[in-house]
Design a protein around this nucleic acid. Structure first.
Length: 510
DNA sequence: CTTAGGG
DNA sequence: CCCTAAG
């Protein structure tokens, strides 16, 4: 497996990696997003044999307008509620801050390499045996006032360390803050970045302030000495991993092998993280090749486990500063990087397939054994990283427990196609409302991702939209509007009658 | 488990 | 789409 890194981490615009395109290998460019010391995301980009390397413009195109975009990275929220009261200066991470010109500084301590073994691996090109956890004691420390920095670099030269410095007119300000905190004084001055970890200086990128702590937080004492940061944008370098196609069977395995055990590649569909299993892929339609353009990847801690119960001291999920927890704690720390696959596909092919108006999922095919990543791998399609950022996913500190756990993830929304609607209408016209299971069997038997509840819901919306009809005749809702209303009226009346009559009457209509 | 509705 | 009270 070839591992390459870009040494030029300057941020003066995107430049294609000076790496010749491999002919026999799929290359994965990982774009990292960093949260304080948390690398939350990666845009995985697969470049097939004839795949084109993503151009900067392309990324910009779909850039999110709220953050930075040159590289398609956004860190929308960088929160730090790290309790720092009891911290002594000696405990603070050592920070090198040559570029800091102002009194302000943001230092993120914590040994990234420990949490992200792959990081070291990347930087050093090999595994580093020793994991200095000197600074890892502190999950994150943030000290800041107002300041301006001027450059944004990722220093990978530092032996066995990853250090990041931000800059460029970064304005950092704390909302409240008594900078008298020992943390501040320390951070902004001396210190050598001996222990590595991420050292970052804020920038325009850093939009600090807005301490919006929960009012009823009983830890008011601590909060007073902590800050909440918001990073609007944050550019991070790219890392390029080259994976020979014959190295592993799946991209997942390949990347995982490279990254080490601390990270895994997640699958993102339409901006939402989905599970990379057959069921989810089936539901989301990822199994369909033409759906792959909505597929993306994210980098997330591995293995993903159910969130551990938090200690009583950790109500807002602030990481303890003395015992760094595995990143797997975060329910969904991985941010989402949307990717698109450029591939020719017939437009709206679902509409052309009226005979099988319902797209089948081919779930019985052997392909169902593939995961999305495997599919991508086998297809060797070019993935174009796009920044579709899920703000929630960007949160470093989950303020509240996600309602839905990994196991009960909400299904990806799959709008009904015209063909599906027509099939639904026809089925309902025939069977009527109230027999959704039959409707499902009749018209959507092959569509595993449509449950009868879905059909019922869809009919509900169809009726709803049809009723307010002519508002926008050009809209899809009107296409079947009349027939929907007709059927609905018919079956409504019939159902009303059935309320009083014997229910067997409907069967005569078939 | 299926319906039916509200969320 | 999800959740869930009723059948």
């Amino acid at each position: 497996m070839v591992l390459q890194k870009r040494l030029d981490y300057g941020f003066n615009g995107y430049q294609e990696p000076p790496i010749p395109r491999a002919t026999r290998s799929a290359r994965v460019i990982l774009l990292f997003r960093c949260n304080i010391c948390l690398i939350t995301t990666v845009a995985g980009k697969l470049i097939g044999e004839q795949g084109a390397i993503v151009k900067d413009e392309k990324i910009k195109e779909k850039s999110y307008t709220e953050g930075c975009y040159e590289r398609g990275f956004i860190i929308s929220e960088l929160l730090s509620q790290a309790p720092v009261v009891n911290r002594s200066v000696s405990e603070l991470p050592h920070v090198q801050n040559d570029t800091i010109s102002g009194p302000a500084s943001i230092t993120m301590s914590s040994d990234c390499s420990e949490k992200f073994p792959f990081a070291k691996q990347f930087v050093n090109g090999e595994n580093s045996e020793q994991h200095g956890n000197i600074s890892s004691k502190t999950e994150r420390e943030v000290a800041s006032r107002c300041g301006v920095f001027s450059s944004c670099t990722l220093d990978t030269e530092n032996d066995k360390e990853m250090k990041m410095e931000l800059s460029n007119n970064a304005k950092v300000s704390t909302n409240k803050g008594s900078p008298t905190n020992d943390l501040h004084g320390n951070a902004s001055s001396s210190s050598k970045a001996s222990s590595g970890g991420w050292t970052a200086a804020g920038t325009s990128v850093f939009n600090v302030g807005r301490a919006s702590f929960r009012p009823d937080d009983s830890r008011g004492e601590r909060i007073r000495s902590s800050f909440k940061f918001r990073i609007k944008s944050f550019r991070v370098p790219e890392l390029l991993v080259e994976i020979p196609e014959n190295a592993t069977r799946t991209v997942m395995e390949a990347v995982t092998a490279i990254l080490g055990g601390g990270i895994r590649i997640g699958v993102v569909f339409q901006g939402k993280k989905v599970r990379d299993d057959n069921k989810t892929l089936l539901q989301t339609g990822i199994s369909h090749e033409y759906k792959l353009d909505a597929l993306g990847f994210s980098l997330e801690p591995y293995p993903v486990q159910a969130p551990q119960p938090l200690g009583p001291d950790c109500r807002s999920c602030v990481l303890p500063y003395d015992t760094p927890r595995p990143l797997t704690r975060w329910p969904s720390p991985a941010t989402v990087v949307h990717t698109g696959i450029q591939q020719g596909r017939s437009d709206d092919h679902t509409g052309t397939d009226l005979n099988n108006f319902v797209e089948s999922d081919h779930d019985s095919a052997p392909s169902s054994h593939y995961t999305a990543l495997e599919k991508i791998s086998s297809n060797s399609r070019a993935l174009v990283p796009v920044t579709a950022v899920n703000a929630e996913a960007l949160s470093v500190v989950p303020l509240r427990k996600p309602k839905r756990s990994e196991s009960t993830q909400r299904r990806i929304r799959r709008p009904f196609s015209v063909a599906e609607v027509e099939a639904l209408v026809q089925a309902v016209e025939k069977l009527g409302t109230g027999r959704w299971h039959d409707v499902k069997l009749r018209a959507f038997d092959n569509a595993k991702h449509r449950t009868y509840v879905d059909l019922k819901d869809k009919w509900k919306t169809l009726v709803h939209n049809s009723k307010k009809g002519g508002a926008r005749p050009w809209h899809r809702s009107s296409w079947t509007g009349s027939s929907v209303l007709t059927a609905h009226a018919y079956w409504s009346q019939l159902q009303a009658k059935q309320q009083m009559k014997q229910p067997s009457e409907t069967y005569l209509l078939l």
